[in-house]
Measured scan of single mutants.
Amino acid sequence: NKFNKELGWATWEIFNLPNLNGVQVKAFIDSLRDDPSQSANLLAEAKKLNDAQA
């Protein structure tokens, strides 16, 4: 379904953000699993944090 596809894509993108540490990645992935409907918002937050830590 739509959420599974978005969840998978967001998970892959978060895993590939180079400036996040393992704890941050795990926290974002756990949040995605808790509420897949928020995948776009969580991915945006992860990208912002990644950019801030560059």
Results as ranks from 00 to 15, higher is better:
residue 40 A to C: 15
residue 22 G to H: 12
residue 3 F to K: 12
residue 41 N to K: 13
residue 47 K to Y: 11
residue 36 P to I: 06
residue 17 L to F: 06
residue 18 P to M: 07
residue 43 L to T: 03
residue 10 A to H: 06
residue 2 K to V: 08
residue 30 D to F: 03
residue 6 E to K: 06
residue 33 R to P: 01
residue 33 R to K: 09
residue 16 N to L: 08
residue 36 P to H: 02
residue 54 A to I: 06
residue 14 I to W: 03
residue 7 L to W: 10
residue 11 T to G: 09
residue 29 I to V: 06
residue 22 G to V: 11
residue 48 K to Y: 06
residue 14 I to L: 09
residue 40 A to W: 10
residue 47 K to A: 04
residue 51 D to F: 08
residue 27 A to I: 09
residue 11 T to H: 08
residue 47 K to T: 06
residue 53 Q to L: 10
residue 40 A to D: 08
residue 17 L to N: 01
residue 19 N to F: 14
residue 15 F to Q: 14
residue 31 S to C: 15
residue 42 L to W: 03
residue 9 W to M: 13
residue 52 A to N: 07
residue 15 F to S: 14
residue 30 D to Q: 12
residue 46 A to T: 01
residue 36 P to V: 04
residue 39 S to R: 05
residue 41 N to L: 10
residue 2 K to C: 15
residue 16 N to E: 04
residue 3 F to D: 12
residue 38 Q to L: 08
residue 28 F to S: 00
residue 51 D to L: 08
residue 11 T to R: 07
residue 51 D to V: 05
residue 51 D to G: 04
residue 19 N to W: 13
residue 35 D to F: 09
residue 2 K to H: 13
residue 4 N to P: 14
residue 34 D to L: 14
residue 54 A to E: 06
residue 6 E to N: 09
residue 36 P to A: 03
residue 25 V to K: 15
residue 23 V to Q: 14
residue 23 V to G: 09
residue 32 L to N: 00
residue 52 A to S: 09
residue 42 L to D: 01
residue 49 L to F: 02
residue 1 N to S: 05
residue 33 R to I: 14
residue 47 K to P: 01
residue 30 D to A: 09
residue 49 L to H: 02
residue 9 W to I: 11
residue 1 N to C: 15
residue 34 D to V: 09
residue 24 Q to A: 02
residue 44 A to T: 07
residue 9 W to E: 14
residue 15 F to H: 09
residue 14 I to S: 02
residue 44 A to V: 09
residue 35 D to I: 03
residue 44 A to C: 13
residue 32 L to C: 04
residue 19 N to R: 01
residue 30 D to E: 10
residue 52 A to W: 07
residue 9 W to P: 07
residue 14 I to D: 08
residue 50 N to S: 09
residue 12 W to D: 15
residue 5 K to F: 07
residue 22 G to S: 13
residue 28 F to H: 00
residue 13 E to F: 14
residue 11 T to C: 15
residue 18 P to K: 06
residue 10 A to I: 15
residue 39 S to A: 14
residue 27 A to T: 08
residue 10 A to Y: 15
residue 47 K to F: 04
residue 12 W to L: 14
residue 47 K to G: 02
residue 11 T to L: 15
residue 54 A to T: 08
residue 15 F to G: 07
residue 15 F to Y: 13
residue 13 E to K: 09
residue 48 K to I: 06
residue 27 A to L: 10
residue 32 L to K: 00
residue 30 D to S: 08
residue 43 L to Y: 05
residue 4 N to I: 10
residue 13 E to M: 09
residue 15 F to N: 10
residue 54 A to N: 08
residue 3 F to S: 13
residue 25 V to Q: 06
residue 8 G to L: 15
residue 5 K to S: 15
residue 45 E to K: 09
residue 24 Q to M: 03
residue 9 W to H: 10
residue 21 N to C: 11
residue 20 L to F: 01
residue 7 L to F: 09
residue 53 Q to E: 04
residue 33 R to L: 13
residue 12 W to N: 14
residue 49 L to I: 08
residue 40 A to N: 07
residue 32 L to Y: 03
residue 28 F to M: 01
residue 24 Q to W: 03
residue 53 Q to M: 12
residue 7 L to Y: 11
residue 44 A to Q: 07
residue 15 F to L: 15
residue 31 S to L: 12
residue 24 Q to V: 02
residue 37 S to L: 07
residue 16 N to A: 06
residue 12 W to A: 14
residue 19 N to C: 14
residue 13 E to A: 08
residue 10 A to W: 12
residue 38 Q to E: 11
residue 34 D to G: 09
residue 34 D to K: 14
residue 1 N to I: 10
residue 42 L to F: 05
residue 21 N to R: 05
residue 7 L to N: 04
residue 8 G to S: 15
residue 2 K to N: 13
residue 3 F to G: 11
residue 46 A to I: 01
residue 15 F to I: 15
residue 5 K to N: 12
residue 43 L to N: 02
residue 21 N to T: 14
residue 24 Q to T: 03
residue 12 W to Q: 14
residue 26 K to V: 05
residue 49 L to E: 01
residue 37 S to K: 06
residue 20 L to N: 00
residue 29 I to Q: 02
residue 27 A to R: 09
residue 8 G to W: 15
residue 22 G to Q: 11
residue 49 L to T: 04
residue 40 A to E: 09
residue 50 N to I: 02
residue 9 W to Y: 11
residue 45 E to Q: 11
residue 5 K to Q: 15
residue 35 D to N: 11
residue 12 W to K: 12
residue 11 T to A: 15
residue 18 P to D: 04
residue 53 Q to I: 08
residue 27 A to D: 05
residue 41 N to V: 12
residue 52 A to E: 11
residue 6 E to Y: 07
residue 19 N to P: 00
residue 16 N to K: 06
residue 22 G to N: 15
residue 40 A to F: 09
residue 37 S to Y: 06
residue 17 L to M: 11
residue 30 D to H: 06
residue 23 V to M: 12
residue 47 K to I: 12
residue 34 D to I: 10
residue 43 L to S: 01
residue 7 L to I: 11
residue 12 W to G: 12
residue 28 F to V: 01
residue 41 N to W: 13
residue 10 A to F: 15
residue 33 R to Y: 15
residue 51 D to C: 11
residue 1 N to K: 12
residue 6 E to T: 07
residue 28 F to Q: 00
residue 14 I to G: 02
residue 44 A to L: 09
residue 4 N to M: 12
residue 13 E to R: 08
residue 32 L to E: 00
residue 39 S to N: 05
residue 42 L to T: 07
residue 3 F to I: 14
residue 40 A to R: 12
residue 46 A to F: 03
residue 11 T to P: 05
residue 53 Q to K: 04
residue 24 Q to Y: 01
residue 27 A to V: 07
residue 9 W to G: 07
residue 51 D to M: 11
residue 9 W to A: 12
residue 25 V to W: 02
residue 13 E to S: 04
residue 11 T to Q: 12
residue 10 A to S: 03
residue 6 E to F: 10
residue 47 K to V: 08
residue 16 N to P: 01
residue 20 L to P: 00
residue 41 N to I: 11
residue 30 D to K: 13
residue 3 F to Q: 10
residue 18 P to G: 06
residue 18 P to Y: 05
residue 21 N to I: 07
residue 14 I to K: 02
residue 44 A to R: 07
residue 23 V to S: 12
residue 40 A to G: 07
residue 53 Q to T: 04
residue 36 P to L: 04
residue 27 A to F: 13
residue 20 L to K: 00
residue 11 T to S: 11
residue 14 I to E: 06
residue 16 N to H: 12
residue 25 V to S: 03
residue 20 L to E: 00
